[in-house]
Simulated scan of single mutants.
Amino acid sequence: MKIEIWADVTCPWCGLGNHRLKAALARFEHRDQVEVIHRSFQLDPSTPTGSTVPVFEMLTAKTGMSPAQIAAMTRRVEDMARAEGLSPYNVGGNNVGNTALAHEFLAYATEQGLHSEAWELVFDAYFGRSRSVFTLDDLVALGEEIGLDAAATRRALTEHRHRAQVEQDGAQARRLGATGVPFTVIDDRYGVSGAQDADTMLGILRQAWDAAHPVALTPVGGSAACGPDGCAIPG
C-alpha cells in the first residue's frame, strides 16, 4: 500500500496529522506492507523570504480575527496534540516565514536516503522545539542532526537543486484537487482531506486494503441450500 501525504512544514494540522497517521499505522494489521511518502505543498509561496513574523501577526492579517480568537484557536490545536501524546506542540508562540527552502531541504534529505527522518526532524524542530526552519544556516544545522554533511547540504540548498521537485509536488497536489493540507492519497485511489483522527484514518486504511485485496472464498460444506430452481433436500 502506498500512502502519499502533502504537507507544509509550518501547518499545525500537518504535524498533528502526521502524528495521527503514525498512530493509525501502529494499529494497522498490514503496516509492514505500507510505504509512506511525504510530499511538499507550500500554503503561501508569496510569503517574503529572509524574514519571519509571529504566527499571531500572520493570522491576524489573513483572517481578521481578534487576538483572543486566535489565541483560542491555536490553544485548541495545542490541547488536542497534547491529549494525543504529542507534547510539547507550540503553535501560537512560533514565528512563520517562507517554507520553500525547508522543502528543498526535505527533498535533498530524501535524495540522501533520509526521507522520513527529515520530515520528522523538521516537524519536531518547528513545533516541538520552536526552532526556525527558514534559513540556510537553520537547515544545515538541522541536517547535521540526522547525519547529513553540512558542506554538501549547504551546496545543494544554495544551488537550489531541488526547487523543481518541490514545485512539481505542489503542482501534482493541485491537479488532484488539493486546496489545502494535509492531503493524503492512498494507492492513487482514495483522497483524504485534513488531519483525520487516528480511528478514522485506521478505518480508511482498512477499507483501502480490503478493496485492493478481495477475499477469495473456498466453498465448503454440504448441499443444503436453495437456488433459482428450488431447494436441495439432503438424502
Rank of each mutant, 00 (worst) to 15 (best):
H103E: 10
G235S: 14
M58A: 14
Q196K: 15
Q42N: 10
Y108P: 00
A225M: 13
E120W: 04
G222A: 06
E159D: 03
V36L: 15
G17I: 12
C226V: 11
Q207H: 14
T158A: 11
H103D: 09
E29K: 15
G147L: 05
R174Y: 14
G180Q: 11
V181M: 03
G128N: 10
V166L: 08
A24S: 14
E145C: 05
L16D: 06
L16W: 08
T135F: 09
V181G: 04
T74C: 07
Q112R: 15
E78R: 04
P214C: 07
E29M: 11
E78P: 05
G180K: 06
L157N: 05
D197V: 06
H30S: 07
Q69Y: 12
P219G: 11
V91W: 08
H162E: 10
G93A: 12
S51V: 12
P54D: 13
G113I: 12
R39W: 08
A102G: 11
R174H: 09
Q112M: 14
G143I: 00
G17A: 04
L205F: 01
F127I: 03
L157Q: 00
I233G: 06
V96C: 02
A151I: 08
F28G: 06
A211I: 02
F183S: 01
V133Y: 09
W119R: 13
G17N: 03
R163W: 07
G170S: 02
R161Q: 06
E84A: 02
G15L: 10
L16R: 09
Q172V: 04
A225R: 14
P182H: 09
P88F: 09
P214K: 14
V77R: 05
A23F: 00
R155N: 02
L43M: 13
R39L: 01
D124P: 01
A150C: 00
V192T: 06
R39P: 04
L43E: 06
R131Q: 15
H160S: 11
H38E: 02
P182I: 00
H115T: 13
G147S: 01
D188M: 05
E159S: 06
D137V: 11
S51C: 01
E29P: 04
H162G: 01
G97A: 14
A125R: 00
T184I: 15
T74F: 06
R206E: 15
F56E: 14
I204M: 13
A23M: 12
D188G: 08
I3Y: 11
A107F: 09
